[in-house]
Design a protein around this nucleic acid. Structure first.
Length: 378
DNA sequence: AACAGGGGCAACCGCTTGCCG
DNA sequence: TCGGCAAGCGGTTGCCCCTGT
């Protein structure tokens, strides 16, 4: 059965021949593709418009990057997939030169298996039940999970919960937990977050360290920075990432306010992350963090009005407002930073909603971030 | 050398969304 | 507001190639 859009036409199906490709490329290059249904007719192809469109988008487009996925791309896919799920088109937007079909195929043929091999549910990125149980008992694929810090989740709750939407893995976070529990011996320190984030944390370490009380400070800039840097497209992509779509109303909202002024994009991102962090702290679901932060505050003078030196590649002013949030104070108020960045109205935005969806994962309680345990072996 | 099985990838199917009259 | 059409998107299928026996 052919496509309904071309059921009346006699269309060819199956693989495209080089001659067909050439015709299509020649036509699209010369005339564009304002109307796909008209393309096959004008290009002299016995294909339906839908097929032409697919062939162009997935194979013939000049800006496509062919070849195997890099490790960086692979990690980006996993991180984005953890938040967006099987929204391949959205995921592909964060991988320049890659198509949704390509990402989807790569996921199904490679990444999915890796995650399963690591004892992770590729749909939820949670530990699979059996794997989770064995991990808790130290018999899982990664014995390093004996570390109680790895069973800690900022939002507490029981086991079996979702992983965080962001790759939160911080030695400091673990240390905060350890402060009120049995501290692991040095050799049991949590394994580093997988390279990309670790490296990226390093990028912004100075900035993070300059933020008193910032729970990730000791280890660097934290996940927020990882998103920004991880994306080849940079800061803009980070915002797109959070908005889920480059054309979403939430981005427009941001564009009309802080973002367009070049002031608030990353700050908003930081507020989001920090807000969630603060929520976790304020909700009392992670007493260890509270204690650790209280101790940290006692050891440190009150933060001065923040005058951070912008880091290379940073948008100036992106960390404005950090201390208020990061000192673990009024979390609810600090959460409002998100909306305040997005506009004076302070109302919920699509950004917020999507974020909160992610927070649903974040607040789902529970398990250690299993993604930390991935071993990248290919 | 021949065959079977599995994996990867290109293409298709069908549903959803957005636009326009 | 509604219906038709085109495009977008995710899931699925099927072919081809590689590898192991």
């Amino acid at each position: 059965m052919g496509h309904h859009c071309c059921s009346k036409q006699k269309v060819k199906r199956g693989l495209w021949s080089p001659e067909e490709d050439e015709k299509l490329v020649k036509y699209i290059t010369a005339h564009g593709h304002s109307c796909w249904s008209a393309v096959p007719k004008h290009a002299g192809l016995q294909r339906c418009g839908k097929s032409c469109r697919l062939r162009w988008i997935n194979y013939l487009r000049p800006d496509l990057k062919r070849g195997t996925f890099s490790e960086q791309e692979e990690r980006t896919i996993i991180d984005v997939h953890r938040i967006l799920g099987n929204r391949w088109a959205q995921i592909a937007k964060h991988l320049p030169g890659r198509t949704d079909n390509e990402v989807k195929n790569f996921w199904n043929s490679c990444i999915k298996k890796k995650l399963i091999a690591q004892g992770l549910d590729p749909k939820t990125h949670n530990l699979l039940r059996a794997a989770s149980r064995s991990l808790i008992h130290g018999n899982g694929p990664n014995p390093s999970n004996n570390n109680p810090a790895h069973q800690f989740h900022p939002n507490g709750g029981g086991g079996g919960g979702a992983t965080t939407p962001f790759t939160i893995s911080s030695p400091t976070k673990s240390a905060a937990y350890d402060a009120v529990t049995a501290p692991p011996p040095p050799e049991m320190a949590p394994p580093p977050m997988y390279d990309v984030v670790g490296n990226l944390m390093g990028h912004d370490q100075a900035a993070a360290a300059a933020i008193p009380g910032y729970p990730y400070a000791d280890s660097g800039g934290g996940v927020l920075m990882s998103f920004r840097d991880q994306n080849a497209a940079g800061l803009q992509a980070s915002m797109d990432f959070m908005n889920g779509s480059s054309s979403s109303s939430s981005r427009d909202h941001a564009a009309g306010n802080a973002f367009s002024q070049g002031m608030g994009a990353a700050a908003a991102f930081m507020d989001v992350t920090a807000g969630m962090w603060a929520t976790a702290v304020d909700s009392g679901m992670c007493a260890g963090i509270e204690v650790a932060q209280a101790q940290q505050q006692q050891q440190q003078p009150p933060p001065p009005p923040l005058q951070l030196q912008p880091q290379a590649g940073m948008v100036q002013g992106e960390v404005v407002g950090r201390p208020a949030v990061m000192n673990g104070g009024g979390a609810a108020a600090d959460m409002m930073d998100v909306s305040s960045v997005y506009g004076p109205g302070g109302g919920a935005t699509a950004f917020d909603l999507e974020l909160m969806e992610s927070c649903g994962l974040f607040c789902g309680g529970g398990a250690a971030n299993a993604m930390e345990q991935l071993q990248w072996d290919c």
